[in-house]
Amino acid sequence: MTLSGCPREREVLDLLARGHWPQACSTDLRAHVDDCRSCAEQILLTEAFQHARAEASSAANLTSPAVLWWRAQLRRRNEAVERVGRPILGAQIFALFVMLAMAIVCVASQARHGQRWMAWFAAMQPSEPLHIQALWPSGLLSSGWNLMILIPVLATVVLLGGALVYLASEKQ
């Protein structure tokens, strides 16, 4: 028996596929099969596998095709929604980074005003009466618009950050 097989193997396989083996085949071929190990093995295996296939096919407990169709549609829809959601998630992350950068810049620009605040607190005498004007820092009077910007910016950052966290958790 060689790797290429017997030249009459195809003939034997055709007969087997059509169900003509062994009744409807020539005596010549039957005699050949008796002597040819390759063809004999082909017949043995093909008959065993075909029988096993028929038996297993009848034992199959099939699911309704409608269920599979529905599951496939559902999966395609989920994949599509995920595909749509991917750029949105990217935009959310980008917005978060932009806001963080803005917050850092804002805090850095206001840090020097913080030094004035510290100086003002240090300059305050505990014996002095506490008037509302005394709480108003002199530094702020010169650049009062800084605080007016800082508070709304920080409030916006906090609000948007909260909204982002909420949206991200909602998605998950």
Binding site: A52, R53, A56, S57, S58, A60, L62, P65, A66, W69
Partner: peptide, 22 residues
């Protein structure tokens, strides 16, 4: 479509199951 799939499924499911099971 779903009808064509149902036909294809009827013809191919049993051989496929036999292959996987065996």
């Amino acid at each position: 479509d779903s009808d064509a799939f149902a036909g294809f499924y009827e013809r191919s499911a049993r051989p496929l199951w036999a292959y996987l099971a065996r």
